[in-house]
Amino acid sequence: MTNLPDTRLSLLVRLQSRRDEEAWGEFLADYEPFLLGMFRRRGLQEADVRDVTQQVLVSIASNVGRWQPDGQAAPFRRWITTIARNAAIRHLSRSAQRPVSGLPEQFASIGQPSSTERAEREYQQEILAWAIQQVRDEFQPTTWQAFWETSVQLRPIAEVARELAISTGAVYMARSRVMARLREKTGHFDPDLHESEE
């Protein structure tokens, strides 16, 4: 992708504020490995993984050039997040349209959500999986288990507390702390997971 450096250059010219520049740099540093991992997990060949990742980044970069400040807090960061999400989902749904397992697309999709919806869901899952990898080691095993058992396995708080030999209060704190951190992490990539309806 020879045009990426050029795009990046004009992009940096467009991003007049140093803060935006940094935000973009940080975003790339995070997002590129995320995309690589995501496409790899989806069984793409290594060459394709690089190719698709590059395509997504380029399409994000070309959109970033169109960015206009809207006066909201941290608008640039949120803006890239949205663009990135759309670009990634587009690629995910496109790759989903190719018959993967030899089964024609129309059979596979009967009774299923549309490929875009599915791609959205997959994208969110990928993000969560990535976020978990990122933050997992920031918590003690007990804290993590308290979160997992009560929030994902949906087991009763009291039962888990007994099992882990901690108080229910500690379980409440643990699960919320992990959740808040996950939300903070995923918010970088997915506005839906980040912005709760308050």
Partner: peptide, 19 residues
């Protein structure tokens, strides 16, 4: 505390996705 961590729909979304 739970609400501060995430809105209810985010909790259930996360649970269903992670599961």
């Amino acid at each position: 505390l739970e609400n501060l961590a995430a809105a209810p729909h985010t909790w259930s979304l996360a649970a269903s996705l992670l599961k």
